[in-house]
Each structure stands twice: as C-alpha cells, then as structure tokens.
Amino acid sequence: MSGLTRTLPDAAATEAVGMALAACLPEALTVTLAGDLGAGKTTLARAVLRGLGHTGAVRSPTYTLIEPYECGGRRVFHLDLYRLADPEELEFLGLRDLFERPAVVLVEWPERGAGVLPAPDLRLALDAGGTGRTLTVEACSEAGETALSALRAHLPD
C-alpha cells in the first residue's frame, strides 16, 4: 500500500489538506488522525467537515468522545479517543451502531482504541517539529488507495 508525505508550514496549510481530503472521500471511509496534542488533528478534522459542507460549529469531541454530523445527506462521525482508558469502552459509545450504515468516520487518538476500532482505510499522522507540521498519509485498503490517489492529485509535491 502506498503513502504520501507533505510539509505543512502553518494552520492554513493543514486546513487546505482537510478541504482537499473532503473532496476525495467516498460515502464510507474510516480515517485515523494520529499526532500529539496541538499537532493540528482537530484543525484538520474541522476542515474536512467544512469541506463536506458543514457550516456550524465543530465542537471538540474530547469530552463527548463522539460528535455526529449530517453533511448533505451523508453521515459523518468525529471521534476523539483521547480520554479512553480501555479500548473496550468504545462499546459504550455505540461504536457498532456507527458502522452499521455507510459513514465517514474521523478518529483522533486512534491508538487508544486499538483492537476494538475497525481497521482504517486511511491513516494520517501529523508530526509537530518547530512551528510547522509533517503530514504522512498511508492507504490501508482499496477504498483508501482510491482516496489517496485522488488526494495526491489535489496536493502537488
């Protein structure tokens, strides 16, 4: 499976990636967003939601763990597993209900859900160094591969 790496000098660059990614998403895709506190995961997720047509507030799901959205008839879920102590706790959030029908699922802190969270289609990682960020995108399924090719066309080297 293939990948992509880009340098993001500022928050605007992170947002541009989110908007581009939104344009490449099929009806159902699970995307994980890894990276430390302040790396820009929520900024990216917010831009994806904006790109999908959401206009209201994008509240941080850190305390609610999950925020559902309806964007132009499609289901989108924004998860933040930061506070999860045990991946099994995902059961309490109704994780299974979530994957019953097609949905775009954006997951921050996916490592806290390891073993219970379904395998992602796309794996994104943001690495903070200095003031800029390094983004790596990795496709982990056929659907992820298709989305990644489309994303590559949106993000020239």
């Binding site: 929520t42 507030a57 509240r59 305390y63």
Partner: peptide, 13 residues
Amino acid sequence: ESLDDAAGEAFDK
C-alpha cells in the same frame, strides 16, 4: 458558545 474547544478543556490540555 465555543466553536471548538471548551475553556476548561484548553486548561486541561
């Protein structure tokens, strides 16, 4: 209202 993080969350993080 807050459009993203809550104030208490900003303190915690």
